[in-house]
Simulated assay, not measured.
Amino acid sequence: MDAEDLVADFEVLDTWEDRYRYVIELGRNLAPFPEAERTEANKVQGCASQVWLVSHTEAGPDGPVLRFEGDSDAHIVRGLVAVLLTLLSGRTAREILDTDPLAVFRRIGLEGHLTPQRSNGLRSMVERIRHDARTALAV
């Protein structure tokens, strides 16, 4: 699934309740997060909820490719993690840095309906992913 597929999925949902339910459903579909990865080092700072992100880098023909795993202790935030991973996991570091996931959140209408704390947490998650992409390019 890419950004356009995600936008199309959200466009068929009529109400915010439906959209929030869909975000929660996406979170439920995340792969189980390894208990051993729930460490301070993997915790995203700046999130009101607990959020963990782990990146794995592999060589690709167009540069380093990053795959992410993530989880949260809050259902909606776990769904936001799932949306971010849908948009960015499996992409090259350059693609990640060239993508504005917050623009996609605006397109699907989620960014304007998040509490300020969740918006700040979302930005913290994006910055963590971008940091990992910059690190992969620097190696």
Rank of each mutant, 00 (worst) to 15 (best):
G112D: 14
T92F: 02
I24F: 07
N120S: 13
V104M: 04
S55E: 06
R78G: 03
R91T: 00
S55M: 02
I129G: 00
Q50M: 11
P101E: 04
A59M: 10
T39W: 13
M125Q: 02
H131G: 12
A133F: 07
R123K: 15
H113C: 10
T92M: 04
A82L: 01
L66H: 06
T99L: 03
F10S: 02
V23H: 04
R78H: 05
D98W: 10
E40R: 11
E35Y: 09
H113S: 09
E58G: 11
F33A: 01
S72K: 03
P61D: 09
I96N: 06
D14V: 15
L80P: 11
V139C: 11
S49G: 12
G60D: 05
D100M: 06
R28F: 05
L102F: 07
T57H: 05
R21T: 13
I96D: 03
T99S: 14
G70H: 00
R21Q: 14
A48Q: 15
Q50W: 12
D100V: 07
V77R: 02
T115F: 08
H113R: 15
E95W: 10
Q117Y: 10
L53P: 00
D132L: 08
L80R: 01
E37R: 13
D98L: 09
R38G: 10
N120E: 10
R91K: 15
E17Y: 12
R130S: 07
T135E: 14
A74N: 10
I24V: 13
P61H: 07
R78E: 03
A133G: 08
V104Q: 05
L85S: 03
A3F: 01
L53T: 00
A138M: 09
R21Y: 07
H113D: 09
V104S: 07
A48P: 12
V81R: 02
I76Q: 04
T135Y: 09
E25K: 14
A136Q: 03
R28E: 13
R94K: 14
H56F: 15
G112S: 11
E95L: 09
S89Y: 00
E35C: 08
R28S: 11
L84M: 04
V65I: 13
S49C: 10
A36D: 12
N29Y: 07
V23F: 11
I129R: 00
P101H: 12
H131R: 14
F105A: 09
M1E: 09
E11N: 14
A74W: 02
Q45K: 15
A41L: 11
A3M: 02
F68Q: 01
L110F: 07
P116N: 09
E35I: 12
L84F: 04
E37A: 15
T92H: 04
E95Q: 13
L53F: 00
T57W: 01
V81H: 01
E95N: 03
V51D: 02
A136D: 02
A82N: 03
T57D: 06
